[in-house]
Design a protein around this nucleic acid. Structure first.
Lengths: 147, 147
DNA sequence: CGGCGTTAGTTCGTCGCGCGAACTAAGAGG
DNA sequence: CCTCTTAGTTCGCGCGACGAACTAACGCCG
């Protein structure tokens, strides 16, 4: 039990520190990671990140102010907005994502490849079993299954 | 990799939700958990939780306002303070801790006992391997944290 | 003893984050 | 049309984290 909780805090600390070094907060990091695949509407982002829409406005505001994302009008719906990475945001998130993966991977460097596979498999099942409520995608999303 | 990060977010979400239901924030929950074993000084808490001392003042202020901890003068050192659980705080943290463990345990209910042991063992080793910097205790004991 | 650097905590101002409630504006549907 | 719903924003609140500046007690060295 303790190991699960402690592991969570450990990974979180690594994630947060990595973000800090790239000049963003971990929330902004998550936003950028979600946008890696494609632009999204505000409501959609709120659902994916588990945030109220009013929280989203502020998060996107700050990230936009940093030049990493931009709001684009949705041609299909005049009141909707598509949030997309800027060129700068794309460059940053690519690096941030890779670097964070590297660091998390490094956490398990004390394990043999077989052990690492076992850990990934078990954890993957735990995540899948509990993904019932809100799917909250992290760095990858698509990179979920295997590598 | 993804599994590690997603697992971390999952456990975190469970922890935060449990805290919320007990009327505290997850930071206050961590503070209370650290104080379960014994009272601590402010600086000591700062080191354990990885917070600047000015952050600690506020956190203890708010938790004290909620009646869960209290500042006691340190008989040995007139400028120091010992932060201790109140009776109310003790009751709450005992329940919060048990309930949170229960919930985290429930996350792995899809695993066989043997698999759960394996997961715990692997994760335990990962945590131990990375406990280099500051130990910051969670519900139970220690976890790691950077810088 | 007296002076002085160290350590423990607090205060202050700033920023990020998350929320609900109230609001505007644009689709959708009878 | 007129209404209902949906998409987002605004506003005000409180929590959380930080660094810089400050106060007060400690301790040491001469």
């Amino acid at each position: 039990m303790g190991a699960l909780v402690r592991g969570a805090f450990l990974v979180n600390a690594v994630y947060a520190e990595s973000a800090r070094e790239y000049g963003i907060t971990s929330q902004q990091g998550q936003l950028l990671c979600v946008l890696m695949a494609q632009p999204r509407g505000m409501s959609e982002l709120g659902a994916m990140l588990g945030l109220a829409k009013s929280s989203l406005t502020g998060l996107v505001d700050r990230t936009e102010r940093n030049g990493l994302v931009q709001r684009e009008p949705d041609p299909q719906d005049m009141r909707a907005v598509r949030v997309a990475l800027t060129a700068e945001g794309r460059g940053l998130v690519d690096e941030f994502y890779a670097e964070t993966c590297r660091r998390v991977e490094r956490l398990s460097s004390g394990l043999s490849p077989a052990e690492r596979d076992a850990l990934g498999g078990l954890l993957g099942r735990v995540v899948l079993d509990n993904e019932v409520p809100a799917v909250f995608l992290e760095p990858g999303e698509g990179a979920a299954r295997e590598h």
